[in-house]
């Protein structure tokens, strides 16, 4: 296991290197760079736009140096936790903006995950046990249907229906969990449910097919032959092994969860990383955008690594292949 972990950690380095290269050079292609944005602000403030001013801003931002030097300076700082300054807000850093947004997105993602598992595991297991029964067909219809409805549609419907039926809208304006847990949960339940509902269809499919496979395994037949009750066989023997595949799915689908937070944060006006990223696009704050994208992809790579390690822990065959 130790060797496997080391190998995986080493493989992560080239991946993160390519990610940082892509992020950095993609941002350099953007039509109109950070200097234009600042010059625009200066012009709006009533100042004259002179070539001297432009050169001054360029030097301040370090944009007068060659691209590869800029890249190494940026990566060097990023490794020390410094992602640069926000271009939109003079006295804030990229990280200070991100730090307040992360808990919001994290809470949505975790709650969405819990909701999706609460739907997917029971339905997936029942669907596999009673294969080709009405509950199996129902679960399969829900799962194929769920895959076909984009999450922004689910989120839109989930916010407008309570408004029509009961005249109830989730409270706007973000409340932190630590200030008022009740109000916070009320506010987060709908956005999380929107992602969770959609996400459960993928998970349900996976739980079902992996449960079906396990139920046909020899050791399950042995357990039944020993005279164990159906319940014990399913809970103690089958379910445990059937959960391995869905665990990896959660890892690979973290990208889907991140995409989901972008959408619900927009619809429900929650100040998370997704909102921050979309705002940075509309405000042309490329420092912020660059920092956010680097942060999100690093999280993505890390979560995938952790999932792979968990998978290898459960299934020793992976480690030795």
């Amino acid at each position: 296991m130790g060797r496997y972990i080391v190998r995986r950690l080493l493989l992560m380095i080239p991946t993160l290197f390519i990610v940082s290269l892509l992020v950095f050079f993609l941002m350099r292609i953007v039509p109109g760079d950070a200097v234009d944005a600042q010059l625009g602000q200066a012009a709006a403030a009533g100042g004259g736009v002179t070539p001297e001013l432009e050169a001054q801003i360029r030097a301040e931002l370090g944009l007068d140096r060659p691209a590869h030097i800029q890249y190494f300076v940026w990566v060097g700082n990023a490794l020390q936790g410094d992602l640069g300054n926000s271009l939109q807000f003079k006295n804030r850093t990229v990280w200070s903006e991100l730090r307040v947004a992360i808990p919001v997105s994290l809470e949505i993602a975790i709650m969405a995950l819990i909701i999706s598992l609460m739907i997917a595991i029971p339905f997936g297991v029942l669907s596999a046990i009673y294969q080709d029964s009405w509950i199996d067909y129902l679960s399969r219809i829900i799962s194929v249907g769920g895959l076909s409805i984009p999450d922004f549609v689910v989120a839109t419907v989930i916010i407008v229906m309570p408004a029509i039926w009961w005249g109830w809208l989730p409270p706007l304006g973000y409340v932190s969990f630590f200030d008022d847990p009740g109000a916070n949960l009320v506010q987060f339940i709908l956005p999380s449910a929107a992602i969770g509902l959609r996400f459960s269809s993928t998970t349900l499919r996976m739980v079902r097919s992996s449960m079906l496979e396990v139920l046909r395994a020899d050791y399950v037949r042995t357990a039944r032959a020993k005279g164990l009750t159906s319940q014990v066989v399913i809970v103690r023997h089958a379910l445990k092994n059937a959960m391995i595949a869905p665990i990896t799915l959660i890892g690979t689908s973290i990208g889907f969860l991140i995409g989901g937070t972008f959408i619900v944060e927009t619809i429900f006006a929650l100040p998370g990383v997704g909102r921050l990223t979309l705002d940075s696009i509309s405000n042309r704050d490329y420092n912020q955008l660059q920092g956010n994208v680097l942060f999100l992809s690093t999280v993505f790579v890390m979560v995938n690594l952790v999932t792979d390690l968990t998978y290898a822990w459960f299934d020793p065959r992976i480690r030795y292949s």
């Binding site: 991946t15 993609l26 990208g255 991140i258 999100l296 992809s297």
Partner: peptide, 13 residues
């Protein structure tokens, strides 16, 4: 490297 980006984020960028 390309797969290390969440799909929607890559599309946005």
């Amino acid at each position: 490297g390309l797969m290390a980006f969440p799909a929607l984020v890559l599309a946005l960028v």
